[in-house]
Design a protein around this nucleic acid. Structure first.
Lengths: 246, 246
DNA sequence: CGACAACTTGACGGGCGTCAACCGGAGTGG
DNA sequence: CCACTCCGGTTGACGCCCGTCAAGTTGTCG
């Protein structure tokens, strides 16, 4: 039951970042039923072509969304951290067009999609928050497309690291300078449209240039200014302070 | 005023494809105020960093969304045809993170975002339709990311052509076999993460292989089966018949 | 008929993929 | 406690796909 508490709190925290919630909104969210599940790394939360009656809130751990070509090439289209709602598309679309898979061990809170949808209908601010979350996701996709389509390998890797820094900090998982990035180099490759070998070369170059330091999967950004420049990074696309604007 | 009529009809038609509308929904949509504008090719409808109090419905013509890197490289992230709602993000996000620009001469119907948002709040089915539209956009972004990140040049170009065929047909602009694709090769390049020179090579190869025929910017797909195969094309991601499923 | 944009084609080079070998740490079984 | 395995990281050699550059052609609009 303390589990129940923390998951409710996490969802309220998430949505409150996206839209100004009234007390009644918070109360309504707190009444949402859900089931907590612990899942191992590599576990599929959503499968392409499948459907789901649940929406998952990532309570701890890391996950990714990806798609595959017929010949088995994989493109990761986003990463998710603690607090992210991982399959909001199920609220409106019947079949999934992508996979969601845990990257590390994780715990998720599964909310019945119908209940969440009913809540959105009853509480306009909740609807706004959910809608915004989907739009911010889309904004990230667009930025990633720019990254994969129009930047060279070094910039792509640097850009991914910058995004991880911002999101880790926002999720209370670290600071802008020091945070975990629990990805294999192959996963970084799949997210940037490169190969793991080349990702390795780029990480080494970023390290040698004094931009970052690495210890296992802990990243330290040593020079944010130069990282920003090299990555072409501008966090506007993350729409970090949306609630304030509205 | 016949303009007014057609634009209302277009919007109702669009939203009815996305969610089952009641008669009251249609009536409410018909009362939305808007302004019709004719714009030349290359005209910016939305600018990155800017904001807008309007949502545009593309009544005729073609448009694209794109982002640019600091050093001036452009990535087109989507194309839009007649009937598309072009900047729904403005309903929920204050500043635009991308540009929207016409590709051909076009006419747009501008609806005040506040009115559309109020309508969404009053009519749940309209809200569903708009939300779905945004989610389908996001799905297209994901597929494009797979295209740009993980397919070779020939497949990328073939994939874009396949998508254009499906969308042209859905918009009543042609058939699956014969349709307009009024893009310069540079625009195709910007959409696929290639250069115009290489796009040209790929178009030639597709033509020589008997897959497509071109006359100016009119495309004829001669062999859908092989095109599907080469492109790795599967239109599920377009969520073509969403209203039926819900 | 001149100007300009877009398309076309070839030559060349480089960034990144591919292949392959080796290393190092974590888990496992004896 | 050690051998074994396996996964991921690291590094080098080599080659290809696609970018770059440049010249020429076509089509369109004035």
């Amino acid at each position: 039951m303390s589990d129940e508490r923390t998951a409710s709190v996490a969802l309220i925290r998430k949505l409150a970042q996206l839209a100004p919630l009234e007390e009644a909104d918070r109360a309504a969210i707190a009444t949402l039923p859900y089931a907590i599940r612990a899942v191992p790394p590599g576990h599929y939360l959503v499968r392409e072509g499948g459907s789901s009656e649940n929406c998952c809130l990532l309570v701890s751990g890391y996950a990714c969304r990806h798609k595959m070509t017929y010949d088995g090439n994989r493109q990761i289209v986003s990463f998710h951290v603690r607090g992210d709602l991982v399959d909001l598309c199920h609220l409106q679309l019947a079949t999934a067009d992508h996979n969601v898979q845990t990257v590390t061990a994780a715990t998720v809170a599964c909310v019945p999609a119908a209940r969440l949808k009913a809540l959105a209908r009853a509480r306009p601010m909740v609807a706004d928050a959910l809608w915004r979350d989907a739009l911010i996701d889309a904004s990230r996709f667009r930025e990633w497309m720019l990254n994969v389509g129009r930047r060279d390998a070094r910039s792509r890797v640097a850009h991914l690291i910058c995004e991880f820094a911002i999101r880790a900090e926002a999720a209370g998982l670290g600071t802008l300078e020091l945070f975990d990035m629990p990805l294999t180099q192959e996963q970084i490759a799949d997210a940037t449209g490169l190969t793991s070998v080349h990702v390795n070369r780029m990480l080494r170059r970023l390290g040698q240039a004094g931009l970052i330091a690495r210890d296992r999967q802990r990243i330290c950004i040593l020079d944010w200014n130069r990282m920003r420049l090299i990555a072409g990074f501008d966090e506007t696309y993350l729409h970090g302070s949306v609630a304030a604007a509205a």
